[in-house]
């Protein structure tokens, strides 16, 4: 019964990443899109929110914001829109933390 949690806001703007990361269960997957990709950056205050989570980030949104992959928290998977679709398929349901 794994769930895909989608976060589209910066953790410095909204509590959504905080809520998502604290409600995720083992086996659940987090996907950061749009301004949510700022939550994937290392050496930043929100980095610890990702501890122990399976995290993917949408590559086109990273590129648009000039975030290179070496700036990401270790272990994060970068996906394209096709990979986004695969994540939706691989999980039983999707929660968009809008």
């Amino acid at each position: 019964m794994a769930m895909l949690h989608v976060v589209n806001k910066s953790p410095y703007d909204a509590c959504n990443l905080n809520t998502a990361s604290s409600i995720m269960k083992e086996g659940d997957q987090l996907l950061l899109i749009e301004d949510g990709v700022y939550g994937a950056m290392k050496n930043a205050k929100a980095e610890s929110l990702l501890n122990g989570l399976k995290v993917s980030v949408l590559g086109p949104d990273l590129a648009a914001r000039g975030i290179s992959q070496d700036k990401l928290v270790d272990g994060i998977d970068v996906v394209d829109y096709a990979g986004f679709v695969d994540l939706v398929e691989a999980n039983d349901k999707v929660q968009s933390w809008l």
């Binding site: 589209n8 899109i33 749009e34 086109p60 394209d80 829109y81 096709a82 986004f84 679709v85 695969d86 939706v88």
Partner: peptide, 12 residues
Amino acid sequence: TAYYFAKAALEK
């Protein structure tokens, strides 16, 4: 985002 997601889903 919704548009690119929809397009990718159809392509798959």
